[in-house]
C-alpha cells in the first residue's frame, strides 16, 4: 500500500540519548519521590536511594550534553525553533484537535513531514522541558551537591531551602510532563506505533 510513507525521524544518537534519558529520569523520579516522602524502603535502603539519585543525576546531566551539543551540530536542533507567526493560534489549534477534532473525524492540523517532526503544542512543551526545566533541575541539583555555592539567605529565607523547593518543583513538572508525554505518544494509528518509532527510528506518515 502506498498510503503510508516512512520517514527516518530519529537518528541513532538521538535514540540512544532518549533511551538513557528515559531510564535516568524514571530512576530520578522514583528515588526523588522516596526522598520527598522519607519512605524508608527496607529492600533498597534509604541511603542507597539517595546515592542512586545522585548518580542518575550525573548520568542524565552528561546525557543532556549529548542532546544539547547534538542539537547544535546536527539538523535536529531546528525542530525546536519556535515561529513567532501564530505563536498562540497554532498550539491552540492542536489542543483543540486533541480535545474535540480527533473525536469528530477532523484531519490532523499539522501533518508530520521531513520538515515538521513535532506539532506546535508538542514543540512548546519539549522546549519548556528540555531548555528550561531540565537545565534548571540540573543546576539546582548540582547546587545541592555543593551547598556552599548556594546564596546563604534570600530575604531571610535559606538558600538551600529555596533551591531544594525549586529542584523538586521542577522535578515534579518533569514527572507530569512524562505522564502526558507517554499518554500522547499512545495517540497514533495504533497505541504502540509511536513507541516502535522511537526504537526503530522510522516514523510512519499516514
Amino acid at each position: 500500500m502506498a498510503a503510508t510513507e516512512k520517514i527516518y525521524f530519529y537518528p541513532v544518537w538521538l535514540r540512544i540519548w532518549h533511551g538513557i534519558n528515559a531510564i535516568g529520569i524514571l530512576l530520578l523520579i522514583f528515588t526523588g519521590i522516596s526522598m520527598q516522602s522519607s519512605i524508608d524502603n527496607s529492600v533498597i535502603g534509604f541511603n542507597l536511594i539517595i546515592n542512586i539519585h545522585n548518580y542518575a543525576g550525573v548520568i542524565v546531566t552528561l546525557n543532556y550534553l549529548v542532546f544539547f551539543i547534538g542539537n547544535l551540530i546536527t539538523k535536529n536542533g531546528r525542530f525546536y525553533l519556535i515561529k513567532m507567526k501564530g505563536f498562540l493560534k497554532r498550539p491552540i489549534k492542536q489542543a483543540y484537535y486533541y480535545a474535540w477534532g480527533m473525536f469528530h473525524g477532523e484531519s490532523y492540523p499539522f501533518p508530520l513531514s521531513e520538515k515538521r517532526k513535532f506539532n506546535p503544542l508538542q514543540k512548546y512543551f519539549y522546549v519548556l522541558v528540555m531548555y528550561l526545566a531540565v537545565p534548571g533541575v540540573i543546576i539546582t541539583g548540582f547546587a545541592l551537591l555543593f551547598p556552599e555555592i548556594i546564596i546563604e539567605t534570600v530575604y531571610s529565607v535559606s538558600g538551600v531551602f529555596l533551591t531544594a523547593i525549586f529542584h523538586s518543583a521542577l522535578g515534579f513538572f518533569i514527572s507530569i510532563f512524562l505522564v502526558i508525554h507517554l499518554y500522547i505518544a499512545s495517540i497514533g494509528k495504533s497505541p504502540l506505533e509511536n513507541f516502535k518509532s522511537i526504537i526503530t527510528g522510522w516514523h510512519q506518515i499516514h
Binding site: N51, L145, H167
Partner: peptide
C-alpha cells in the same frame, strides 16, 4: 560528593 548521604526535603 555522590556517595554523600546527606539530603534535604524539597516541596514536601
Amino acid at each position: 560528593v555522590l556517595t554523600n548521604s546527606s539530603y534535604v526535603i524539597g516541596t514536601h
